[in-house]
Each structure stands twice: as structure tokens, then as C-alpha cells.
């Protein structure tokens, strides 16, 4: 799987999303599942999947799928692959 697919899977795992649920337009607190507790779960999923450790600012700024892509890019992950 490429980075974008892995990130989709991280979101799906952390937020208990079903197959077919829209992921790339999700925003923090935009759906009931993405609350503050699930947010920390999402951070953990991303860190484990991509073997990175996010800054506190990243954790706070991770407010959408697109923002997550930007954060991964900042950490040297090739999100176009």
C-alpha cells in the first residue's frame, strides 16, 4: 500500500469507519466518532504506521485528512508514492 492508502487505513482503524465511508473530506469533530479521545488514538495509529513521532503542534494541527498528509510530508514521508 502507498502512504495515502496507509493513512486512510489509520483513519479507518482509529475512528471505526466502515468500508465506503468518506475519509478524505473528514474534519476533526465533523463526525461523532472523531472526538478528542479518538484523536489521540488516531495519532497513535499514524505514528505506528509511519514510524514517526508527531510534535505537540502536529497533534493539535491534525484537523483533517489533508492536514495529516501535510504533517506526514513534513516528517519526510513521500505522500505521492
Amino acid at each position: 500500500m502507498n502512504a495515502k492508502s496507509n493513512l486512510r487505513q489509520s483513519f479507518a482503524n482509529a475512528l471505526n469507519l466502515r468500508n465506503g465511508d468518506e475519509i478524505e473530506t473528514l474534519e476533526y469533530r465533523g463526525i461523532p466518532q472523531w472526538n478528542s479521545l479518538a484523536h489521540m488514538q488516531l495519532v497513535q495509529e499514524i505514528e505506528t504506521t509511519f514510524d514517526v513521532m508527531l510534535d505537540t503542534e502536529d497533534v493539535i494541527g491534525l484537523s483533517s485528512f489533508q492536514k495529516a498528509l501535510g504533517i506526514l510530508s513534513k516528517h519526510g514521508i513521500d505522500i505521492t508514492a
Binding site: 489521540m40 495519532v43 497513535q44 505514528e47 505506528t48 513521532m53 505537540t56
Partner: peptide, 13 residues
């Protein structure tokens, strides 16, 4: 506080 924040994230794993 800063240390506890970061440490708890590693421990959560």
C-alpha cells in the same frame, strides 16, 4: 507537564 504529555503518548502504545 511537557514531559508528561510526551511520555504518556509513548506509554499509550
Amino acid at each position: 507537564i511537557y514531559n508528561l504529555q510526551q511520555a504518556s503518548r509513548l506509554m499509550t502504545r
